[in-house]
Amino acid sequence: MSTEAPYAGLTPDHVLDAVTACGLWPDGRLLALNSYENRVWQVGLEDTSPVVAKFYRPRRWSDAAILEEHAFALELAAAELPMVAPLVFGGRTLLHHDGFRYALTPRRGGRAPSLESAEQLEWLGRLIARMHLIGARSSFAHRGRVDRATLIEQPMQAVLASSLLPSPLQARYRVAAQRVDEAVAQRFEAVGPVRQLRLHGDCHPGNVLWTDDGPHFVDLDDARMGPAVQDLWMLAGDEPAMDAVLTGYQQFREFDYTELALVPALRAMRQLHYAGWIASRWHDPAFPAAFPFAAESRWWEQHVDDLHELADGLGAG
């Protein structure tokens, strides 16, 4: 894995210069926003509202994949869905400055939704259904899928290649991860083919901002092809919550209830991917600072135990 710090050359001056290059006038106010995969700054402007500058992690997505993300966001916004979409400068949304790729969006505030509120969950269900109606119109060509290769195999290899995983745990981790992989494969096979559509992909409460006028969605950085339930389960922590989300969802789009059987598999994939994500990004100085527990043997011991528990829950042999 690369040992290069991907954002070592991205200074506040670079951020201001990149915004200025778009014909905007920063007033010098910068606020680093909570983001580890990319670097995101709120930039104050003279005589107008701030913008958010998102600098993409080098070599993660191709230009074509990022442009698909932008096109999807603009398509959703054009359909009057509350999606924060990139601003267009000279016909371009993907911008380049001093070796970095970036995009600017309007700054939209808000708070996390209340996942205990049936009213808010139904509201989110309606909006996600409308998003999926748009998402089903065409397919991504460059952004991949919610699949085992992306969310299990690649993260597992990243962990095994990392110095974070203690040597005595390597064999146990490999067995646990393979059990999850086999159990997930069996679950997907048992459910059978489900319709694939363009998804938000990472529709957790942190990517939904609620205001007095209702919610809006941010961050399509993990948008990819997959089953509709991928955009629902992270907002629904239990059966009553899922019922509320689906009550709203089905007002606009039919839901295939067989997809609910995929939720334990999707949850297991996300947990395995999380550890692989940390391992693959450990060379970025932001990660040891944000996730110091990943340098401790006991965290990996618990992670291996959790993987076995997830496999057991999926009925693995």
Score class of each variant (00 low, 15 high):
Trp299Gln: 10
Trp61Ala: 13
Asp213Met: 08
Gly44Asp: 04
Glu182Cys: 08
Trp282Asn: 02
Val84Tyr: 10
Gly28Met: 14
Arg148Asn: 08
Pro193Glu: 11
Gly317Ile: 09
Phe89Gly: 10
Trp277Gln: 07
Glu259Thr: 07
Gly44Arg: 05
Tyr249Gly: 03
Arg29Leu: 10
Gln251Glu: 04
Leu260His: 06
Ala64Lys: 03
Ile134Asn: 06
Pro193Cys: 07
Pro285Phe: 08
Pro26Lys: 07
Glu122Cys: 11
His283Gly: 02
Glu239Lys: 03
Leu272Val: 12
Pro106Val: 00
Leu127Arg: 00
Gly44Pro: 15
Asp231Leu: 02
Arg137Trp: 01
Ala241Leu: 05
Pro26Val: 15
Leu31Trp: 15
Arg60Lys: 15
Phe291Lys: 02
Leu74Asp: 15
Arg145Tyr: 12
Pro58Gly: 15
Ala158Val: 08
Ala236Thr: 04
Ala279Cys: 05
Arg267Gly: 07
Gln196Pro: 02
Pro166Trp: 00
Gly125Leu: 01
Ser280Pro: 10
Glu309Asp: 12
Asp306Asn: 09
Leu164Ile: 11
Ala118Gly: 08
Gly192Glu: 05
Leu151Ala: 14
Leu95Gln: 00
His96Leu: 01
Gly317Tyr: 06
Val184Leu: 00
Pro12Ser: 12
Ala279Asp: 07
Phe293Lys: 01
Gly125Asn: 01
Phe140Val: 04
Arg126Cys: 04
Arg137Tyr: 01
Leu76Gly: 09
Pro113Glu: 09
Gly23Leu: 06
Gly201Asn: 08
Tyr56Glu: 09
Trp61Met: 10
Val184His: 00
Gly315Thr: 03
Pro227Met: 07
Phe255Gln: 02
Ala77Cys: 09
Val43Lys: 00
Gly109Glu: 02
Tyr257Glu: 10
Gly135Glu: 06
Gln271Met: 01
Ser139Pro: 07
Met225Val: 03
Gln302Arg: 11
Ala190Ser: 05
